[in-house]
Amino acid sequence: MAEIIDIRHIAKIYEMGDEDVHALEDVTLTIKQNEYIAVMGPSGSGKSTLMNMLGCLDTPTSGTYLFKGENVSEMSDDDLAEIRNREIGFVFQTFNLLPRATSLHNVELPLVYSGIRSKERIARAEEALRQVGLSDRMDHKPNELSGGQRQRVAIARALVTHPSIILADEPTGNLDTKTGQDIMALFMDLWHAGNTVILVTHEEEVAQHANRIVRLRDGRIESDTVNEFTNSVP
């Protein structure tokens, strides 16, 4: 399988007053197409920083990040925005939907920034919502939806651009157990359908869905193992 992400010796250092905080140190990681990776670690382990890095929301202080062979670490803000738009689908813990927009419009939004015409946008957004089982909630606004439904809208938004990776940050963190399981089942379906999924979580149970688990501690990779217990392999 082709490599999508190739991170070599990256470090991220934040300046907090006079002190330098090493959020990530010497992290090297490759991710291939159609992997299902869980990034685990306690809070403060650097998970969020790594996720921001992988999602091209932030650039490393040192080291290189090749995304499909392109050097992301030296890109401008606008080039990063384009990579995010084209290649990455984000799913956040707090859903991060636009509160005043309908489900359909929320899902359409990434395509607006890709410059796709309204007609095609709507068709693709409808298709993505169908995929997550929300055909009947297209005209609802986020506050008219349950937590699980909101997260499905967010997943549809992540899928609509057919990204190379889906990056989910604690996607079940704000959901009850049952709804969380439904969402995890949806990620499983997406993986089986050929998508590459990166899941950031601190819950062991959630991480067990993935076929590879990367554990972080104090900004370094502690372990990177294939998860043999994963319930189903594509």
Binding site: G55, L57, D77, D78, A81, E82, R84, N85, R86, F90, N96, L97, L98, L109, P110, Y113, S114, R157, T161
Partner: peptide, 11 residues
């Protein structure tokens, strides 16, 4: 932030 995350550029 949401718009930027999903690909809105500065412009």
């Amino acid at each position: 932030g949401i718009r930027k995350a999903i690909g809105a550029r500065k412009r």
